[in-house]
């Protein structure tokens, strides 16, 4: 399982748990969960890419900044994304460089789901063990 939406964890918001064999993969799957929460990814074509580089004080802030970019690009540039690929992930220095793949939102083509206002730190958790990583976070809807 790449991610799941946790049913009763957040009353007004959306709780997400994402998994991966590595922390990098769990970050990518967290992004996928956010993309899918905004708009059904099935109909999104990879027509445009957006490059992001993020450096933060700790891993939680790195996750926050990384995921926030999806929301920002959606609001400011009307983009919806199918997936994210992290090409550089420096866990120790809390740095990542990634590419988002997607296109402009078209209400005739795409199926909108939720408008996400923000990522939150409430109940955010990052578990990183050998061959197994999991990330839990709540987005404000």
């Amino acid at each position: 399982m790449k991610y799941e939406y946790l049913i009763d964890e957040a009353t007004a918001d959306l709780a997400i748990k994402a998994y991966g064999e590595t922390l990098k993969e769990a970050f990518e799957n967290s992004a996928l969960a956010v993309c899918e929460a905004i708009c059904e990814t099935e109909n999104i074509d990879e027509q445009e890419i957006k490059l992001v580089k993020k450096k933060a004080d700790n891993l939680k802030m790195l996750l926050y900044d990384f995921l926030e970019e999806i929301i920002f690009l959606h609001d400011a540039e009307n983009m919806v994304f199918k997936r994210a690929e992290i090409d550089e992930f420096d866990e120790k220095n809390c740095f990542l460089s990634a590419v988002f793949f997607g296109e402009n939102f078209d209400n005739k083509k795409h199926v909108p789901k939720a408008h996400i206002k923000a990522i939150t730190y409430f109940d955010m958790g990052i578990e990183n063990e050998k061959n197994k990583a999991a990330i839990k976070f709540i987005v404000d809807v």
Binding site: D57, M61, Y64, D65, E68, I71, F72, D75, A76, K117, A118, I119, Y121, F122, D140
Partner: peptide, 27 residues
């Protein structure tokens, strides 16, 4: 999105500037 981003920006700015406050808080 304006309000959402302002809240987000300032929560992160406070977290960076006042780590000792963050440590003292339950959330």
């Amino acid at each position: 999105g304006l309000g959402h981003q302002v809240a987000s920006d300032y929560i992160n700015a406070i977290m960076r500037k006042y780590p000792e406050i963050i440590k003292s808080l339950p959330d």
